[in-house]
Design a protein around this nucleic acid. Sequence first.
DNA 1: TTGATATATTCCCATATGGGAATATTATAG
DNA 2: CTATAATATTCCCATATGGGAATATATCAA
Lengths: 98, 98
Amino acid sequence: MLARDGEHAVGDLVRSLRIPQPSVSKHLGVLRRVRVVSVSHRGQRRLYRLNAQELKPVHDWIKTFERFWSHHLSRIKAAAEYKAREREQQHHQPEQEN
Amino acid sequence: MLARDGEHAVGDLVRSLRIPQPSVSKHLGVLRRVRVVSVSHRGQRRLYRLNAQELKPVHDWIKTFERFWSHHLSRIKAAAEYKAREREQQHHQPEQEN
DNA sequence: TTGATATATTCCCATATGGGAATATTATAG
DNA sequence: CTATAATATTCCCATATGGGAATATATCAA
């Protein structure tokens, strides 16, 4: 449950997400504590906005795997490794095993 | 708790992360169910590897906020908006209020 | 087989979050 | 001050995950 961009009043989120108001407020409460969203008051409205900076670390980390899906060659290589490993295994298939 | 790259035996993770083996196995169990990691057997070892593809969606989403931290001008603008909003508010400061 | 390794699973307990319903808060309109 | 709109918080209940300890599995070595 996230405010994509700009500021959003709780009510707007409630309507667009079709989730009960208390739930939305609770979600926002959590995100607020973790500093992923920020609030500003405007009349009796609370305007929430995403705190992009907080997401940067995640972005930086996940970014280190970009090569896995962005480069064609990488994908081919990955697929090859994948199959190679697949073969080495003695035909299991519980959760997934691949 | 994640295998950064290549394949990692549970034991290696246990040692490098300094987390009890049962915990590591449990973590991996969860990640396995969500398909974020994959396993392959090699002798009595279980080799885990990150399933990068599963992270792509997250990457794609979070990427839409890249502008917030990558462009100088964007940062300045963001800071300005930030302060602007700050002023409009009537001096609260519970959780954070900004 | 038997013992040792490498992992996984289970048990119990604690905490975080989600849902629904009810209630409290805050701010605006009159 | 009072009613109402906009949000937040609390209660109760359910489930997911984390920690520690104990135990079960699987695989290898002899």
